[in-house]
Amino acid sequence: MAETKSISMSVKIGTLKLKNPVMTASGTFGYGGEYADYVDLNKLGAIVVKGLSLKPRAGNPPPRIMETPSGMLNAVGLQNIGVHTFIEEKLPILRKYDTNVIANIYGETYDEYKKVAQKLTSAKGVHALEVNISCPNVRKGGLSFGADPKSAAAVTRKVKEVTGLPVIVKLTPNVTDITAIAAAVEKAGADAISLINTLTGMSVDIFTRRPHLKNVTGGLSGPAIKPVALRMVWQVLQKISIPVIGIGGIMNAEDALEFLILGAKAVQIGTANFINPQATIEIIAGIERYMELNGIKNISKLIGTFRS
């Protein structure tokens, strides 16, 4: 159809321009290359890579995952190759693709966040930083930063001080009032907010009477958390004016559209990548088809059209 060509799906997150609003969620797409056999990476709005720390991290002992009703628990423990190896070995591969590379970063101290941000800012081929203040798996780590408006704002400020790249702050849902954290992070200078990270959960093996995960608790993701994510995105949108990226249980284009209609400028696809490595591409095609069927030529005419 000739009309298909005239459909624009491009969106802007601060100064970051995306060809479409579909990104991969950190920790579900490796460093990109893992999916290159299944997905034309050039078609993605952005690739958000596995969370990077200053030093490589071995991660948690197994078992690390467990399927639960309409979802899964994971306690990978931020296993990653470290920022140095990422820049040396993975970034050159990613630079070959015509897509945005968003580096998800993580630290145990303010200083570590700063150092990781600095290293990635001076590397060629990183288009934005996503700051993980919310990973629930490492006791000393993210949770303490993301659960308190003051420390969440402090991390944001420290990272902003050392980078000119757009800074996206990824929020944890495991808090009493997510809108307070969102407002604090916005005030501290964040360019965008992404939410939600996983919900802390657990699962018990009734035969051994032990936890299914060695770490006992883990992060719940998948379709089970979508209604919670939608509610939180909706609440946060009413409190802040910087762009919001919706994450949580998006399995298909319909799910993604729910977030976009609410007002999320973009979405991230996580657990769906595990179930169908081509989920991102199918979601992009599905959004386009929806726009076509509904006579929407520009995605900006769809985003935030929620009627409450």
């Binding site: 299944y38 948690n60 002992p61 995952i65």
Partner: peptide
């Protein structure tokens, strides 16, 4: 080992 993706991304099957 339990695994989610089978292609090296989820790091579940450590």
């Amino acid at each position: 080992e339990r695994m989610a993706c089978g292609i090296g991304a989820c790091l579940g099957c450590a």
